[in-house]
Amino acid sequence: MKDKQMTKTIKGIAAPLPLTNVDTDVIMPKRFLITITREGLADGTFADLRFDNVGQQRPEFILNNAPWTQATILVVGDNFGCGSSREHAVWGMRQLEIDACIGTGFAGIFYDNARKNGLALPVVSPETRDALLQFASNTSGAEISIDLDSRTITAGEISVPFEMDDATRTSLIRGRDDTLDSLEHAGAIRDFEAGLDGRMRVSVIK
């Protein structure tokens, strides 16, 4: 599989989504999970927030309103991505062309899934998040820029640092495949297995 392109700066219109504890059931309801592929999940993403019971767009939902229909960045509430491990939530967000979510903290499995799929999750202080929510709400069509190299977010007059661990940042910039990367350490894995003395190796087929 080919490496993806290098990404250093993410730039786009940001939409405010201030709800706290947005869980992966809300991001990708279960009726879209009965699938064996990664594709076709854009319509499922935030489906119950975007559409009503008869499939009509909910006018009150931010992503249904211009200019946020074009949003590629979300500014989100605390603990975004909590709940189920379903990576479908991240696949769907990427298929909806979301490149980044800015928040105060993310659930662990969601964070790891995001990294594997090129979804950047810069972490900022509650004050910065609130300022960015304000910016995203008030500034029609203005863009937010996220520089992964310098770990800085720029939004109009606002220029603030964000947190992101080194491994995640490198992974997002290089877009490499973790599985293939890790197989370069096959020798170390075999050495570890050879040293599993005193512990029996698990075998389910017995």
Binding site: S85, R86, E87, I109, D112, N113, K116, T179, S182
Partner: peptide, 9 residues
Amino acid sequence: GIGTSEVEH
């Protein structure tokens, strides 16, 4: 718990 990419890994 892990995501599907990690299951592959």
